[in-house]
Nucleic acid binder design. Structure first.
Lengths: 357, 357
DNA sequence: AGCACTTGATGATGCGCATCATCAAACCCT
DNA sequence: AGGGTTTGATGATGCGCATCATCAAGTGCT
């Protein structure tokens, strides 16, 4: 880190101004569209002269200076506590990133991935030795599951323009986010199950209290309210492990539950496996559905074409960026920006009407 | 784009200086490691005071200002003419990006994806209405196949610090790159084929004159030189389409060629299909090998476990960033930085000794 | 002719920082 | 005790740009 000077120094605005025998202000005006919006007007003749000088010198505005002067730099960040291009987890991030990139591109901004934000260990952190490293970007989109909520809350309270992908509730901070409507999707899924004729539906719920799961809780509760006692809807807390799933499935089947709903596709796969082990056929003897398409480690799930709610990842990513843009363009309005997006549905092969129906 | 002022203005160096009752220069020195390298020395006591003030105010250096003043901003860019997170082509980019991210993270820099660099149509462009949009980053890594070579040459000639992933020769410009040693890999593959006993080997070459293909040409030529007339090595120019491949395979088989080498895995798949259509079995009746693992559109290739050269994508990405770092740290040395990395080899199931051997 | 108004352009200022030249004080050695 | 050196800190300057306040000249209207 030294020598601030590049081999060949780039021409500056002043150089252009000199060559065209005008003031720097005129050059600036010409470069940024001379609508006169900034108070400086330029005649056609001089503008032409300036443009000629620009071409001749190969002048290119210095981004740093420009961003310093006008207070924004056209960079939108993406932060996550996890590594950004993990070889494996790509499947999880990918749709979000695609959406983010799409929207950022529409805004004509650049996308900054915060790779340098790690502390001594490999763990990432926003406040790196006391300084908010996200400041490099005008604002940021926050993705991920594992997170330091205290730090995030501080970030938002600090007034840093941030938008989460997925609903978040942080203590003492009004968070902006682009979320998926898991509540409605869950309710509709349960209604669909009921509509198929199932009268005993059990939900196998993991222990997470993440907002995305709480939303599904809400949806499940709503469905229950609406269906009343026409359908027996039970929630069973089961650790998200194949063995634990396998341990509860037999009992539920015996009790006459004809449809099991799990938090995610991976657990649904476990249920299918457990059912198969019992000599049952899915979906003939037992229907299975998932509240999330995600698969975390086990790829054998692909064997089953599981019926599941899908996350509108791309739309969420894109919407998050749009919200962020709004946040940046209207800094006076401090209210949180929130969007809730409809989920998709994958009508797989694990859900049909129950045998008796 | 307006209102340069955020709700709450960020504290500046001057604010910190005031609070700690020191001069701005001291704050600057504390922030950038007070080795005294910049001429300003700070005592332990005052340094502590300044640090306390920084913490108290939550001061964060303004990147734009910093970068304007010192000429660098700790941002490394990745540019490509294609979209960066294309849903499909991800397989192609992914390894490179992983390597890039890895190395950038080591440098403690951030990674900027140039998403905003598109002109009116969807096509990306470096010189967007006359201004080099890559300037936001200290330097950039360039990836991709479809490219505007004239623009790239201009970029390099302009003295912009850029490193290519993959060898490139541009007119009038000394390019830095991290390339794969396709020449050696190709030669070794042909030698291996010869070693297995094949005496008639044909290469099905597409029409590309990309450097990565030219390198394979060189490797093929080297192998030919070395093997002399012990092995008949022929090159056949064939358009990279399944039909064209299917059209030439029968003739080659009839002429006694026992091993066909293609530019990439997709074409190798075409060969396998063509061979199968002829009632031949791969590799019993015909061996097949590819000079590149890439598959561009057709996923049915997965049916064949094709023997192929593999590209050290991750290493190339990481090396490119390291070269770039060197370029940035030693701007005085204008010589191009170049690294050539050994390829890998996937010993698939399509190459064995010929039947007669 | 006189005034209001528009057009075209200028110079100064500041964005937030790094760095250089300068300087005061403390320290060391003889 | 006094000259030289090291340590610790200060102000000033400039990086390249956008923008604001100002101003001269031209235009239209009564």
């Amino acid at each position: 880190m030294k020598a601030p000077e590049r081999p060949r120094k780039r021409p500056t605005q002043a150089d252009v101004a000199r060559l065209a025998s005008v003031s720097p202000a005129v050059v600036s005006a010409v470069v940024n569209g001379r609508g006169g919006a900034n108070g400086v007007r330029v005649g056609d003749r001089t503008a032409a002269r300036v443009e000629e000088a620009i071409r001749q010198l190969g002048y290119v505005p210095n981004v740093a200076a420009r961003s310093l002067a006008r207070g924004r730099n056209g960079i939108i960040g993406v932060f996550t506590y996890e590594a950004l291009f993990p070889l494996q987890a790509m499947s999880y991030y990918h749709p979000f990133l695609v959406g983010v990139e799409e929207a950022v591109e529409e805004l004509d901004c650049h996308l900054l991935l915060f790779t340098g934000s790690h502390t001594d260990d490999r763990r990432r952190s926003i406040y790196k030795n006391g300084t908010n490293s996200l400041q490099v970007a005008d604002g940021s989109v926050l993705i991920g599951q594992s997170e330091d909520r205290a730090e995030l809350a501080e970030l938002v309270r600090d007034g840093y323009p941030a938008v989460f992908i997925g609903r978040r509730e942080l203590p003492g901070a009004e968070v902006s986010y682009a979320a998926a409507d898991y509540a409605t999707a869950t309710r509709e899924l349960v209604e669909r199950i009921s509509g198929l004729g199932h009268r005993r539906v059990a939900r196998l719920r993991g222990g997470s209290d993440h907002e995305s799961i709480l939303d599904r809780d809400a949806g499940f509760a709503a469905a229950r309210d609406q269906l009343g006692d026409r359908v027996d809807t039970t929630e069973v807390f089961v650790p998200p492990r194949a063995e634990s799933i396998a341990a509860v499935v037999p009992g539920l089947v015996e009790q006459g539950y004809t449809c099991l709903v799990t938090d995610d596709r991976e657990r649904a796969g476990d249920v299918c496996a457990a059912a198969t082990a019992l000599g049952l056929s899915v979906p003939r003897d037992l229907s299975v559905a998932a509240l999330s398409e995600y698969v975390y480690v086990d790829n054998s799930v692909e064997r089953w074409d599981i019926t599941t709610i899908t996350t509108p990842g791309r739309e969420m990513g894109a919407e998050a960026v749009r919200l962020l843009a709004d946040l940046l363009d209207n800094p006076a309005d401090a209210t949180p920006r929130r969007v809730v997006i409809d989920c998709g549905f994958h009508a797989g092969a694990t859900l049909t009407a129950p045998q008796g129906a």
